[in-house]
């Protein structure tokens, strides 16, 4: 059998990758993802471009540059040598970028496929949103999003569903990026002893993560570890010294806070605070909960890729449920269980 030329091999691979992209994009079940990986296995060769011609171009560029340097060394007055050095350098940079782009094509597809798997395993759906508009809308619902005097933006958002033993609820998980702007004044003394005062603007970037969801059993209560402003007029302290050391409770009225903060709820929040730093729980007037913290609990990392389909298939077969997220959802469910009425 005749061996296909590198260019036709690459063309065939590009077409195959394009069809894979479409399949991954439309994958709705784990079976669909499995099918993608079986297709990769049946492709019959590794998903790698034949970059011989690009490497040749890269080497030629380097060689041209080196020869031009030598030429410039022997003939320092030469006008064309610097141009040749530049042309050689540019050629090798262009080919290096092309090689890198080809390599990342496969890696990007592996990322996309793994992301789909993570979304499926965690019961997530992508939702359309505009980062700045959504942050503005959320700042009207929760004080948490009033942080940042310069800019506020939701950088990532997903919608999920949690099914517990007693309650089922939908939630949104987000990544909130906000920027504080401040003026810094410094005094500089020059060599002649003159004092000059300069003012510059500094931008501090912060990232917080969290979930927001309907929580119909509590309203107008804020339990905050990362305190940044007033929430409600009344304050309340439950009996736990440890809880009071870590959290401040404010509510529209003390009684509703006392009713909500049953001992089981208090210890659940204590434990939640141990797992998540900078934890805030805000129940707004519309009976919605925003639980926010400093760690990104919706992070994932793949171990394998499409270049090793068997290992990748095994990885995809595994459960990609994000442990800290699941534990947090479980704890929210416990809060619901203790706040509802059994009779």
């Amino acid at each position: 059998m005749d061996k296909a030329s590198p260019s036709s091999e690459n063309k065939q691979l590009a077409t195959f990758l394009q069809s894979l992209r479409t399949q991954i994009y439309h994958a709705k079940t784990r079976e669909d993802l499995r099918h993608v990986l079986h297709t990769v296995r049946s492709f019959g060769r590794p998903l790698c471009y034949n970059n011989t011609s690009y490497w040749l171009g890269f080497s030629m560029g380097i060689l041209l540059g080196l020869l031009a340097i030598l030429y410039a060394y022997w003939y320092p007055s030469s006008v064309s040598a610097p141009w040749l050095i530049g042309a050689g350098g540019l050629t090798s940079v262009i080919f290096a970028v092309l090689i890198y782009m080809r390599r990342s094509k496969v890696s990007d597809l592996s990322d996309a496929l793994f992301k789909q798997d993570v979304y499926l395993d965690n019961n997530w759906q992508s939702v359309p949103y505009h980062g700045k508009k959504l942050a503005a809308q959320l700042s009207r619902q929760f004080s948490e999003f009033k942080r940042g005097n310069h800019s506020r933006e939701i950088e990532w958002l997903v919608k999920g569903t949690y099914q517990g033993t007693d309650h089922q609820f939908d939630y949104h998980a987000y990544h909130f990026h906000y920027v504080d702007q401040r003026q810094v004044t410094s005094t500089i003394r020059d060599s002649k002893g003159n004092v000059r005062v300069t003012t510059r603007t500094v931008y501090d970037h912060f990232h917080r993560y969290g979930l927001y969801l309907p929580f119909r059993f509590a309203r107008n209560i804020a339990i905050t570890n990362s305190w940044f402003g007033g929430f409600f007029s009344s304050s309340y302290k439950p009996a736990s010294v440890e809880f009071n050391r870590k959290f401040k409770v404010s509510a529209s009225d003390e009684l509703s806070a006392a009713k909500f903060l049953k001992p089981a709820v208090v210890v659940e929040i204590e434990d939640l605070g141990k797992a998540l730093s900078g934890l805030n729980l805000e129940f707004n007037a519309a009976s919605e909960l925003c639980i926010s913290f400093e760690q990104n609990i919706c992070q994932w990392q793949r171990q394998h890729g499409l270049d090793e389909p068997d290992a990748f298939l095994q990885e995809i077969e595994g459960d990609q449920k994000l442990a800290t997220l699941q534990k947090t959802l479980e704890r929210i469910h416990t809060l619901m269980r203790h706040s509802d009425n059994n009779f």
Partner: peptide, 27 residues
């Protein structure tokens, strides 16, 4: 069914209240 659920939740609350009591006693 409701009764059993209520008893289970009450026991959880008592367990939690005892944990808080023991924490405070330790402090």
């Amino acid at each position: 069914g409701k009764l059993m659920r209520e008893i289970a939740e009450q026991q959880e609350n008592i367990g939690a209240a005892i944990r808080i009591f023991n924490q405070n006693v330790e402090a």
